[in-house]
Every structure is written in structure tokens, then in C-alpha cells.
Simulated scan of single mutants.
Amino acid sequence: MSDSADTDRTTVKTYVPTYQKSEWQSHADELGMSQAEFVRTMVQAGRKGFDSGREEPDSPGGDPGGNGLETRVLRLLRSDTLSWDELLEAVSEDVESRLDETLEELQTNNRIRYSGRHGGYTAVDGGGDGD
């Protein structure tokens, strides 16, 4: 491929529910990203789970290779010098709150329940991903 083929851009169009677009915009704002950059980053991050043996080329902009954690770590370190433990705590907080929100949503939708008898969460819908 020529160098110009690596940097040419094209439009990708998709349709999502209004609430989802609003959630994406809010999350993009929290990360200091445009909505386009946020969606591109999330798609690239999702692709890595499906094609782990393939390396992504560096993407232009603030998120090389589409690595959201990389972007968050760089943002944290640009504002302060942090130890390993401080970095871990800063990036873990987001995971904890996302897990809490996800568990609440799954319980609201009766996809999981908390079982005191078994000491944890269990799938109500047979344990599959439901998709």
C-alpha cells in the first residue's frame, strides 16, 4: 500500500438509538475525545478481541493503535507524576464503576441475580451472552 492509502479517510455511517448516542457522547466528553474518535477507538478496541494476532496500525490523533487504556494513562501522567499503585487505583476506579453499572443493568433486565446462598452473582438466562 502507498503512504496516501494509509491516511485516506472515508465515511462510515451507522444508526443507533438516541440514548446510546447520548451515552457515547457523554463518555467521549469525559475522555476529552470527539465522538468520532471515541467510536473509532471503541471499534478498534473491540476488534482486538476478535483478531488478537493482528497488529493495528497507529491511528492518527490522540489514541495510537486504538488503545483506550493507553490514552487514559497518558492523560493521567500529563497532569502529574504517579506511582504504579496510584495509576492502578486511577484506572481501576473506572472499571469498578462500569462493573457496578453493568451488574445493576443486568439485574434490572433479569439476566443475572445475586445468590446469597452461593455467595455471588449467577446468570438467570442460562449463562449465555444472549446475543
Rank of each mutant, 00 (worst) to 15 (best):
V73Y: 11
T81E: 08
R98H: 15
G62I: 00
A45L: 01
Q44F: 05
G65S: 05
D100F: 11
S97L: 01
D94C: 09
E96F: 05
A90T: 03
R75N: 14
D51C: 00
V39T: 04
R75E: 14
S83D: 04
D80K: 13
M33N: 07
T102N: 10
L82A: 02
V95P: 04
R78D: 15
V43Y: 07
M33A: 13
D94I: 13
S97N: 13
S52Q: 06
Q44L: 12
G61S: 13
S52R: 10
P60S: 14
S92Y: 14
R54L: 11
E55T: 06
E89R: 02
E93R: 02
D100W: 08
D100N: 12
L99R: 09
G32K: 05
R54F: 06
S83N: 02
E104A: 11
Q35W: 05
D85Y: 03
F38G: 02
E104R: 12
V39G: 00
N67F: 02
A45K: 01
G46F: 11
A90S: 12
N67L: 06
L99V: 15
E96Y: 06
G65L: 03
F38W: 04
R98K: 14
D58W: 00
V39D: 06
L103M: 15
E55A: 02
G65R: 02
L88G: 13
V39K: 10
E30F: 10
R47S: 02
R72E: 12
W84R: 14
W84M: 04
L76Q: 12
D58V: 03
E37R: 10
E89W: 07
T81I: 09
G49S: 07
R54D: 03
L99W: 07
L99Y: 11
E96G: 12
E56S: 13
E96H: 01
S97W: 07
R78T: 08
S83E: 04
E70N: 11
S97F: 04
M33P: 03
E30V: 06
L103R: 02
G66H: 02
K48I: 01
T41L: 00
G61E: 03
R72D: 06
E70C: 04
L74H: 02
G65V: 00
V43T: 14
T102M: 09
W84F: 08
G62H: 00
G32S: 09
P57C: 03
A45V: 00
R98E: 15
A45G: 05
R47W: 09
D94Q: 14
A90V: 04
V95Q: 09
W84I: 06
L77E: 10
E56W: 00
L103F: 11
V39F: 10
T71L: 11
R78K: 13
L77W: 04
G61F: 00
G62R: 10
V43R: 02
E101H: 08
G46C: 06
L88I: 06
S34P: 01
L87F: 04
L74E: 12
V43L: 15
E96M: 12
D100A: 15
G66M: 00
D85Q: 14
G53A: 10
L31V: 03
L31T: 01
S97D: 14
E56N: 13
G46P: 01
S59N: 12
L82S: 03
S59Y: 08
G68P: 08
S59M: 05
S52L: 08
L76C: 07
E105N: 12
D51A: 05
V39H: 01
P60I: 05
